[in-house]
Computed example of a mutant assay.
Amino acid sequence: MHYVNSKSILSAKNGMNLYRGCSHGCIYCDSRSEIYGMDHSFEDIEVKKNSLDLLKKELIKRSPSMIGCGAMSDPYIPLEKKIEYTRSALKLIDRYGFGFTCITKSDLILRDLDLLKRINEKTKVVVQMTLTTADDELCGILEPNVCPTSRRVEVLKTLNNEGIPTVVWLCPILPFINDSEDNINSIIDCCIESDVCAMLCFEMGLTLREGNREYFYNALDENFPGLKEQYIEKFGQNYVLPSPNNRKLMSIFKRRTSDAGILTDNNEIFEYLSQFPQKSIQSKLI
């Protein structure tokens, strides 16, 4: 890791990234893409040394609203266990009466359950969790340095039991790897059991561009010999790589989530995530 001083910490829409880079090792991660202009190794985590001071100043100036993080770097990477920047940010969010939502794959978020509950009691917290495969062994290949799916489902259940609403990101679904009916059905089963309020899905497939494409293909060579050539033959240099099973899998997804009362309209979900506070909508989703 290395420290830098940042000029700002909150975006115009109150997005926040305390870290830049990640050590989860997910083979498909778009944040590796060259388009983001990272000038250091992705695993050499950039820590914004002055981020908490900047955050405090911004929270004092702004009207209470939702603060979001995790779009570019998981706020609960292993480094967080040691330096606790995310936890410190939560204390500020709690102190100044803001709401909080984040995207993570890590069970480390349960360390901060006390703060999440306190914030949720006063305003609003929504935890977003990524699920890609119901198979823990495959999960260990696709997302090698983070807790397996079965543990993430336990986290979702714990959060639900504590009254904190959850949203699952069902993505990416990798062609010829996890794009099976059994996998999609199993993940939906997990979401129903965990009583998630919504599932985000942008069709079945993934995106690749310079930077993450090379990393992904190296991982395919290592773990799925011969599959890279199949990808190149079918998709070439395309940015969007749809699963050949997309239509069938999306039909299953829409039917089963509708039957279970799980919200899947992406626009409505993002609106819900950004609204502060909307206890009436939250109650409806729960």
Rank of each mutant, 00 (worst) to 15 (best):
S186D: 04
E121M: 13
S23W: 04
K81G: 10
E229A: 08
I232L: 15
S88I: 05
N160P: 09
R213Y: 02
S65T: 14
K248R: 10
H40M: 03
G15H: 11
I192V: 15
A89Q: 07
R62S: 06
A71W: 03
D107Q: 13
G226E: 10
V168R: 00
V125K: 02
L285Q: 09
Q128K: 14
E121K: 15
V126Y: 04
G163W: 15
N160A: 15
P244R: 04
C29N: 02
C26E: 11
L59H: 07
D265V: 01
N14C: 02
I164M: 03
R213E: 00
E34N: 12
S73D: 11
T130F: 06
I103R: 08
K81E: 15
I192Q: 06
P78W: 08
E268Q: 09
G25S: 08
P172R: 01
Y272W: 11
C139L: 00
E80H: 09
F216N: 12
R62A: 03
I60P: 05
Y96V: 12
I141D: 09
S23E: 06
N266F: 02
N238M: 09
I67S: 01
D112N: 15
T166A: 14
P144S: 04
N145C: 05
L79Y: 05
P75C: 12
Y36F: 15
C22P: 05
Y215Q: 00
G211N: 12
C147E: 12
S251L: 07
S106Q: 09
D53Y: 13
L79M: 13
N238Y: 07
I164W: 03
G205Y: 02
P148S: 13
S6I: 10
V126M: 01
V196M: 10
L54G: 09
L92P: 03
D114G: 13
Y85A: 09
F42D: 00
S106L: 03
P175S: 05
P172F: 02
F42K: 01
M38P: 00
E203G: 07
D94L: 14
V146L: 00
V127M: 15
S106D: 10
R256C: 01
C69L: 14
A89S: 14
Q237S: 11
S274F: 12
I119L: 08
K248T: 00
M250D: 10
G70Y: 09
